[in-house]
Amino acid sequence: MERNLERARIHFGGDTRGLLEGGRYALLHTRSLELDDLRPYVPGDDVRDIDWRATAREGDVLVKRFVTEKHHKILLVADAGRNMAALTPTGERKSDVAALVIGVVGLVAMDRSDEVALVYGDRTGSGRTPARRGETHLGGLVDRYRGVAAASREPSDIAVQLDYVAAGFKRRMVLVVISDEPEPGSELGARLRGLAGRHDVLWAMVEDQPAIGSADDELDGFDVGTGRLVLGGPFVGPRVVAAYRRAEAERRARLDAFLTECGVRGVRIAGAADLRRGMVSLLGDFAHAR
């Protein structure tokens, strides 16, 4: 199972400093052994924190102040349906890239001693793995997702997983949603605003391979959701390709505005080579959110 995290480390690197810090909620505060500074004693301070040497030297009672560590409970919400069998712009299977995203969150959480749980599924329902810490558990989350996504033949519908989370997870958490790019709409908006009111919601969107990429030698493809043929650029011609690209740019802009309006921070990831840029952007932005 640990090799699953190693795959993520190969593509992401080992430096996770500064990621997933801050946010609106610090769900668990623990005192580290790292000394911050000294300050005067006030009633109610733990007498065990008194620095007797500094007190004798300065003539005033001084107590040690330690660095406070903030830990989160993280919930990964991953689409394991048929959409994730499609390819990314780099030609990788989307479920493989999603597994790498899970692995990266695992690496960050392992370095921070955060607890991580997983919700996964498709249109027919959701499953879950409880929150725990540790390398074996975090590697197991990747393994579990890979197995479910490889076996699923059912359509994707991330709204089913979001409803499952809304009904079953009332405590404040950091939600990291992993799917393809959702279709904006009033129903999804209501779900996201409800979740964002209770949790910090981050969305890692694994990009689709373009339906029409060029007017040159592109081959025809098919939609994994419907099985329908998608004609390539040589068949439809350059004007249709150009119109498609304009429509795609407008769609992406609408989606970005929609997520911002819902209080969700999102990032697109095109493939394994894009993993570090995307996840640092997503988790780094979170580090500065208040």
Rank of each mutant, 00 (worst) to 15 (best):
E69Q: 11
L35A: 13
D45E: 08
L76M: 06
D79R: 01
K64P: 12
L75E: 03
G22V: 06
H71V: 02
V47L: 11
R57I: 09
D49K: 05
H72R: 08
E58D: 06
Y25I: 10
V67E: 05
E34L: 13
P43L: 09
D37P: 00
G23Q: 10
L33K: 14
W52N: 09
D51A: 04
D49G: 02
D51V: 15
E21Q: 08
E58M: 14
Y41R: 00
R48K: 14
L33Y: 06
I50F: 12
K70T: 09
L27A: 11
H72I: 02
V47E: 04
K64V: 12
V77C: 00
L19T: 00
A26I: 05
V42F: 09
R31N: 08
E69C: 02
V42P: 05
D36A: 12
D36W: 07
V77K: 01
F66C: 08
V61E: 01
L19G: 12
F66M: 05
F66L: 03
L28V: 06
H72G: 06
G59I: 15
Y25A: 12
G23N: 11
V63E: 04
D49N: 10
E58N: 05
Y25G: 02
T30W: 01
L27H: 12
D36N: 06
L33G: 14
T30Q: 12
S32I: 07
R24T: 06
W52T: 02
L62P: 02
D45Y: 10
R65E: 15
D51E: 14
S32V: 11
L35W: 11
V61D: 03
D46H: 07
L62W: 02
T55R: 08
R65A: 11
R53K: 15
I50N: 05
R53G: 07
L62S: 06
D45A: 14
P43M: 09
T55Q: 08
R48D: 06
A54S: 15
V47S: 10
S32K: 09
G22E: 04
H29M: 03
I50C: 10
H71W: 03
E34M: 07
D45Q: 07
S32C: 10
P40R: 12
I50S: 08
A54T: 09
I50T: 05
V42T: 10
G23Y: 05
G59R: 08
A54D: 13
A78S: 09
D51Q: 14
W52G: 09
Y41Q: 03
A56L: 15
E69N: 03
L35C: 07
G59C: 12
D51W: 06
D79H: 04
L19R: 04
R57Q: 15
D49Y: 09
V47Y: 11
F66E: 07
D51S: 13
V47A: 15
D60M: 14
G23H: 07
D36I: 02
A56S: 15
V42E: 02
K70H: 11
L20E: 01
Y41N: 00
G59E: 11
V42H: 04
L38H: 15
